[in-house]
Amino acid sequence: MKPEFENIPLVKTDKRFQIEVNGHYAFIDYRETTHQIALIHTEADPELGGTGAAAAVVEKTLNYIEESGKKLLPFCPYVFAFIKKHPEWKRIVDEKFDGYDKL
Rank of each mutant, 00 (worst) to 15 (best):
K2E: 15
P3G: 07
P3K: 14
P3N: 14
F5P: 03
F5D: 01
E6K: 14
E6L: 14
E6N: 13
N7H: 14
N7W: 07
I8A: 04
I8R: 08
I8Y: 07
P9G: 07
P9Q: 10
K12C: 11
K12Y: 13
D14C: 07
D14M: 11
D14N: 15
K15R: 13
R16N: 14
F17L: 07
Q18G: 04
Q18A: 10
Q18E: 15
I19A: 05
I19Y: 03
E20Y: 09
V21E: 09
N22S: 15
N22P: 05
N22H: 11
N22C: 05
H24W: 09
Y25S: 07
F27N: 08
I28D: 05
Y30R: 04
R31P: 00
E32A: 13
T34N: 13
I37V: 14
A38G: 02
I40M: 11
I40S: 01
I40F: 01
E43D: 07
E43S: 05
A44F: 00
E47W: 00
L48N: 08
L48Y: 09
G49Y: 00
T51V: 05
T51F: 03
T51E: 08
T51C: 06
T51Q: 08
A53F: 05
A55G: 15
V57G: 01
V57W: 02
V58F: 03
V58I: 14
E59I: 01
K60H: 04
L62A: 01
L62M: 03
N63Q: 14
Y64P: 02
I65Y: 00
I65P: 03
I65C: 03
I65F: 05
K70Y: 12
K71Y: 11
L72E: 10
P74R: 11
F75V: 12
F75K: 12
F75M: 13
